[in-house]
Design a protein around this nucleic acid. Sequence first.
RNA 1: GCGUCAGUGGCGGAAUGGCAGACGCGCAUGCCUUAGGAGCAUGUGUCGCAAGACGUAAGGGUUCGAGUCCCUUCUGGCGCACCA
Length: 860
Amino acid sequence: MADETTATAATAPSAGRERERYSPQEIEPKWQARWQESGLYRTDLALSDGKPKFYNLMEFPYPSAEGLHVGHTFTFGGADTNGRFQRMRGNTVFEPMGFDAFGIHSENYALKQNINPMQLTARTTRRYRYEQLGRIGAMFDWDHTVDTSQPGYYKWTQWIFLQLFKAGLAIRKEAPVNWCPSCLTVLANEQVIDGHCERCGTAVVQRELTQWFFSITKYADRLLDNLQRLDWPDESKTRQANWIGRSEGAELVFAVAEAGDNAERGTRSAELISPEGADAGTTADANSPFRVPRSALSAIPVFTTRPDTVFGATYVVLAPEHKLVPQITTAERRAEVEAYVEGARAATEIERTDAGREKTGAFTGAYAINPATGARVPIWVADYVLVQYGTGAIMAVPGHDERDYAFARKFDLPIVEVVASEAGIAEVAYTGPGPLKNSGRFDGLSSDAAKGAITAWLAERGTGEPRVTYRLRDWLISRQRYWGPPIPIIHCPEHGSVPVPEADLPVLLPEVENFRPTGTSKSPLASVESFVKTTCPVCGGPAERETDVSDVFLDSAWYFLRYSSTEWDDRPFDQGRIRDWLPVDMYFGGKEHVIMHHLYARFITMVLHDLGHLPFEEPFKKLRLHGFVTKDGAKMSKSRGNVVNPDDYIGRVGSDAFRAYLLFMGPFDQDNDFSDKNLVGVTRFLDRVWRLAVDPAPTPGTGVEMRPLHRYVKRVTDELERYQFHTAIAALMEYSNWIGANREVFTAAQRAEAVRTLTLLLAPITPFLAEELWERQGGGYSVHQQAWPTFDPAQIAEETVTLVVQINGKMRDRIEAPAGLDEADARELAGASAKVAPLIDGKTPKKIIYVPGKLLNIVV
RNA sequence: GCGUCAGUGGCGGAAUGGCAGACGCGCAUGCCUUAGGAGCAUGUGUCGCAAGACGUAAGGGUUCGAGUCCCUUCUGGCGCACCA
């Protein structure tokens, strides 16, 4: 038996001296150095010992002004606990860490400090890596790290862009961007607070710029369908599904009425349709497969999920940006419509999309033909119709759509009831299902059945077809900024957008004097002549480089692939490594990334799979979300002044105690409010553990029933498997209390086994303390390479059980009974109970429920 | 408005449909050292002297049995913003 006799002279308490106390300030730096020097966390990526691999991933941070945040300590602590647990269970665990160093946060910090982000990032990552991340005691493999702002990394980010470009998935189109007229710069959505610039408070306006997009919408269905087979939290799957927002319906065509159709309206004349309208016979959405009848002067395709209500479509509404607006507007209406469109353009997206706002709009003077009824219906422009969604135009059915109802009421447009309901439509729109009316041959048909029937009928006549639309929009990749990977495209006057040859990658981000926004709605790179001026890879003629950089989310959409292969410069990731190590086994992520980061990583993986670069299409087998650490119920932020600095606490109580405390606060997947009030509970616990392991053993006793040990091992194991770190720690506390209570009763061997098991069970949660105690017990280096304790299932079973006796479902007595008693035994025991007997005396039980070994419920 | 997660002692929180409140904080009493914000023991949901009754945001339902499942409502966090 390994007793404290094996401890070194230095650690043995000498007579008369105070006993040695737990001092994290001494043991933590000691083991941090030892771990590094022995390469304990260097992963054998070749898997040469044949153990199963486990890729334990957590979201990498962006280096910022404040340094490491308690939130990081919390999430990395939990994720690392899982990594260490998996390692002790016999896996080769790969747990890398890196830096999401490009992007707006780092750039903003650099602007504030007035230091070029290139130098600043180098400085902050060094601090992060060596000072802060090192101290939290995670088993990061620093031999495989990434920094997304390094040319060796972003070379491959650019390579990925080129793969998408070649596959036709990177396209250029016009899109509105947020523009701050005071800062003279493009703003990200997150820099726009309530329609105003985050920095100067100026109202933000929309500007149209030609930008690069990734066609993520082409993958919408697969991104949606694959969700079913992912081991991800329902919360995140549901939110992604809602974000993708698949909706099934129909695209119906409303032809713009010919001049002749308006004969009875004296106010109209032939000039109502501008001459260029004649060759504008395309749909608003260039991607639409739908063909517009040539016979129509012009036609408006609309998307609807309610084709069954088309007989009630009494007007058509175009989004203000809809391309047909200028073409169809009549001369006498032009001024009003132009003013309305102008006003809508000036308004911010936030203002325009305030759902509670009163409806506004303008009549174009033009009319369209309802394809079902053949009736002439007026065409309006209104900003409640969004140009990006569907076809940018709707058929308005005021009887059965709330928004259309409000609009029709305000502008006095006709409302027709086409779905019968009890409530009718006198007061509000009826949006539910029901039998059709006022719908010609479809009267009486249920709205559900009518959806298909009417779409089919219109399809036969060439004015409609089934259509699926998504809420998801294409991924805007362009950023008019400095701090990101230049988009590897060259614009040639002859050959258009030409990809930079892969051999010429990376397109280096030049180190510039002025990395500030330029005020020209272009990236600062546009003013670097040596960067911009180049030659066309196709013809060799003079050409210009693309000056936008790519979105920071592209950097993080593939970093988990790169970790596996950082030793290769000539490939983004090595196929052997990919085969051995991916997909990621476990990904710990934040709720704030459920939509963007997680979706983009899935998309890029799927595309790389389709292009033959990856053998799988989903990057993360298992995902678990962690909550935020809040302070006084609010998110921590510098402006609130409620940021908790982990360094202060680590200095005071040690990394182990701080990490264990954060995990003990509450469930890992929920938000937890930080308050150091409870910290003392955890430090006391670790002190107690220390004393149990290090203090001289009391005189051995006569021995104790060791069954509880097996139950504690099982409990801790079960809780860690569920990522319930707080209840795992609670079980460890109970276990150490049990050891303490039996100190004098254990035999020497029992005591050693109990302490040894405690040390092993603590290793994933308090790695420094466990390592120190392990050494003092004479265990070999390192505790983190030991096998996880097992338990004997036979020892888990209780010999006696507490039988709960209920009368009518109410608990009346508890009786100690031998395990394995049957119903007859239980009834007999219950009948003999002084508490139960009077309650059933003389009554005949109506029903008896017996849960073996647990509970007897007598219904009288 | 839509979606989503949650609501349990003084506090953080625990509880495969089967003993509500594990574990910890705080508090109380005692012990021990008294240099301590150290340690040990016991107690601690509410009402009640007690037996007991009542208790998981509110109301209803399913069930022998509901904190847990279903419906309605309220409150809070987060996400999205008129998605046709």
